Simulated scan of single mutants.
Amino acid sequence: MPTMWASKTLAKTYQVLVLCKDAFETKGNYPSPVKIIKIGPKRLDFNEFANLSAIQKGRDYWEFCLSVFKFIENYRPEVLIVYYPVSFFIGFISAKLFKIPLLYYVNEYYTLSDLPKKLSFHYFYKLLEKILSKKADAIIDVEKNRLRLFRKFAHLDNTPSFVVTNCPLSGLEIPTRIPKILSQCKNQKKKILLYQGIISDGHCHAEMVRALIDLPEEVVLVLLGHGQPDYKASLQNLAKTNGVEHRLLLLDRVSPEELFSYIAAADIGLLLYRPKSLNSIYAAPGKLFEYLAMGVPVIYPGKTAIREIIGPLDVGEAYREETPEDLAKSVRYLLNRLERDPHIKKRARESYLQQFNYETQFAPVMDFIAQLIKSSSK
């Protein structure tokens, strides 16, 4: 999503070219000035690439780099923004050779110890990232603590850097049309807890299902998103075992255009992370800001940097541990607060309108890009 939002924002002023690997999803509502071009071998998909021999990996990586170089040589963009370590090397070479300003968008923060052994080629990308980051004109990250750690990792003493959170674009209206399945819940005076995103055992979905036991009967849990069928079935069985299957809705993911109608129907938005790695501890997930955009208060893990965002806004409640008891306690408290303080939803919505929209977040980068282009044209 940051690729799409940055492209839409930049396209208001500049021509934008998005280079995507074949294995990456390129569907999206991009504006007409944005050109989408698929390049590189499909095997650059991480799962397939990890199983190749060293010779095959080298050949595929060279093919990918050559494709990128040819497009940049022909297109000669005014500025080059690189989003993934795999593209950094050839992006750097092209930027220096053709004298194009280069910005690096840090996709995730992880240490080498976080990498599975089968993804050993990541060590190569991580090394390139560390070396080449010093040569970029600027670094962008989605969270201030992650940016601080990355600057320390790459020894970025003088390189300008920016925090641009994964916020939706401005101009979103709160939908008035509610999806039928959630409209039925509303008509029955149900309280809707909504989680949207990847449904996997890396999140505490099972604990949230168990938490329903300790919550009022009118509370229903909606899990909206993509997940392995076996895992979804296990959640359904867990709900049945605990007698709450009638209060659990497992829904497949919907289009970005439909998503906000589901979020807007919720009473509470859920962030069900297990903060184990630095990447998850210092998370600033897009779903958080999508909840805020629709005026939906949130339940979030208190051991993460999300507290630094939600705390000052006073639009949510943290759970201390990923246990059914703590989750239920946080939900009960926030539901009670919503009855006492109806302005919570207004504060959440205002935070999106005034601060957490992509144009506002990206404005300093736009100013910096304008100065870079002006300087490079002299």
Rank of each mutant, 00 (worst) to 15 (best):
H122Q: 14
E258S: 05
Q184L: 14
K378V: 10
S375H: 12
L278N: 01
F124I: 14
E217W: 15
I310K: 07
T241H: 15
S53Q: 09
E25M: 03
E207S: 04
P41C: 01
K126G: 11
K276Y: 11
T304D: 06
P285R: 02
D114F: 01
T323R: 12
D252A: 15
Q56D: 14
A11W: 07
F92M: 02
P116R: 08
F98C: 10
G91P: 02
V220Q: 03
K186D: 01
I174Q: 00
T323W: 15
S32C: 14
R210M: 14
N74C: 08
S280N: 15
V244K: 09
K152L: 15
V296C: 03
S200I: 11
F92T: 09
E325D: 04
L44K: 00
I263W: 00
T165F: 00
R320M: 08
S280K: 06
P256T: 00
Y104P: 05
F368A: 03
K346C: 12
V254L: 03
I72S: 08
L223N: 08
C20D: 15
S183E: 11
A95T: 02
P2A: 04
N47W: 14
R59Q: 13
G91C: 02
K191E: 03
V163P: 02
S375I: 09
I131W: 13
A6Q: 12
F71C: 14
A328V: 12
L115W: 06
R76P: 02
M294Y: 00
C167K: 02
K240T: 15
P324Q: 01
L372P: 14
P256K: 00
R177W: 09
E245S: 10
R347P: 06
Q228G: 06
N187L: 14
S200M: 12
R332T: 14
V222I: 06
Y104H: 07
S133H: 07
